[in-house]
């Protein structure tokens, strides 16, 4: 639920010329995504235009403008993980779940997002489930990981 006072508190805690990205991180951490309402409230509080806030939100891949599932699985799509079959495994999982990149399962349990490198490239393929890292994920390993969230 959107709470304007909470947005104000977050904005005020990160005052400074470089604050917007930090504010957006904190908003997303709190609400799971950055809603239209939140953007309007941030703009109001920082005395900048809504377009400026939206411009920043839309530029960075981390920021979501839609709510996500209960769990978020980020799969690495970059080269080192591809070299160990990460792309094939990811495609199979997406097909089985019936979602595309960024999509959420119909029951709202799991969102699958792409990520380009987690720095685990010598233990590829890798993934992050709700902030926890996993490496050396073969097809079965990835399936098990997804099952944890389903």
């Amino acid at each position: 639920m959107f709470k304007p006072e909470l947005v104000n508190t977050i904005v005020d805690a990160h005052q400074g010329p470089d604050g917007l990205l930090t504010i957006l991180h904190a908003i997303q951490e709190e609400f799971g995504f950055i809603s239209e309402d939140a953007m309007r409230q941030i703009a109001l509080r920082l005395n900048i235009t809504r377009a400026e806030v939206y411009g920043v939100v839309s530029f960075y891949h981390d920021y979501r403008t839609q709510p996500v599932g209960r769990h978020v699985l980020k799969l690495c799509r970059a080269e080192a993980c591809q070299s160990m079959g990460g792309d094939t495994n990811a495609a199979a999982l997406l097909a089985r779940l019936g979602v595309d990149w960024g999509g959420t399962t119909a029951d709202g349990r799991l969102t699958v997002e792409p990520v380009y490198c987690l720095g685990l490239c010598a233990c590829a393929p890798s993934a992050m489930l709700d902030g926890a890292l996993h490496a050396r994920l073969d097809a079965a390993g990835l399936e098990n990981l997804a099952q944890e969230a389903l």
């Binding site: 010329p17 470089d18 990205l21 930090t22 411009g55 920043v56 530029f59 960075y60 891949h61 981390d62």
Partner: peptide
């Protein structure tokens, strides 16, 4: 510490500086 927001191009030094200033990178 300043935390980025998932944009590869922000590794480019001038884009990084804009990002540090809270703008689009």
């Amino acid at each position: 510490v300043f935390v980025g927001a998932g944009a590869y191009v922000c590794g480019e030094e001038t884009a990084l500086l804009d990002s540090l200033e809270g703008k689009r990178g």
